[in-house]
Design a protein around this nucleic acid. Structure first.
Lengths: 94, 94
DNA sequence: TAAATTGTAACCCATAACGTTACTGGTTAC
DNA sequence: GTAACCAGTAACGTTATGGGTTACAATTTA
């Protein structure tokens, strides 16, 4: 499964949370209680969503932390699955 | 949500994958292509399931990588959510 | 008794999540 | 046009985590 390259959660934050509200990155970083650099890294795909960050996002944008971590999961897994064939693993169950 | 403390994925691996098959930790580590210490750390809850490890488990035990990472997600989130009230975050959406 | 198994301590390395400070370039406002 | 704001990011440090090797102690099994 997981057929298409899932967007990194930063894109979703920007397009669905920040831009519609007309907020600045600086203001959102302050609201989240993190540095502007940390938020910028997330928005531009240079950092992932940590469990704590998922909770912060869920508070600020009135969502669930699980949904944010799930997006990160699918993004990480898409890259990990690309390397599946390169892993030297023996099947223990048919 | 997430009412009860979810078990760490290591417990699940031991109880649902290793013990039923009568395998040794040493043998499973070799099959997974990782060190015995790394597997031991996972089994005893001293390390989490990385995306790559989820893919290894999915190959060895004929499961999905997503299911393993999802268990890790819920485990991590359970601890992160416990700190929710301590986070200084301002609501941007009602 | 001898061999195998397991947990783990001690050490290494690489990566990642956070922070601060500071620079640069682009927009907006006056 | 100049001052203010805004965003990306480079450079630095700290802390934590995943992974490896080696080695030891305790237990189990043959």
């Amino acid at each position: 499964m997981l057929m298409h390259n899932p967007p990194h959660p930063g894109e979703v934050i920007r397009e669905l949370c920040i831009e519609p509200l007309g907020l600045s990155v600086t203001d959102v970083a302050k609201a989240l209680g993190i540095s502007r650099k940390t938020l910028s890294n997330i928005l531009n795909g240079h950092a992932g969503i940590s469990p704590e960050m998922a909770v912060r996002l869920s508070i600020a944008f009135n969502t669930t932390s699980e949904s944010w971590l799930n997006q990160q999961l699918h993004h990480d897994l898409w890259f990990a699955e690309k390397e599946r064939k390169k892993l030297k693993v023996k099947k223990l169950v048919a």
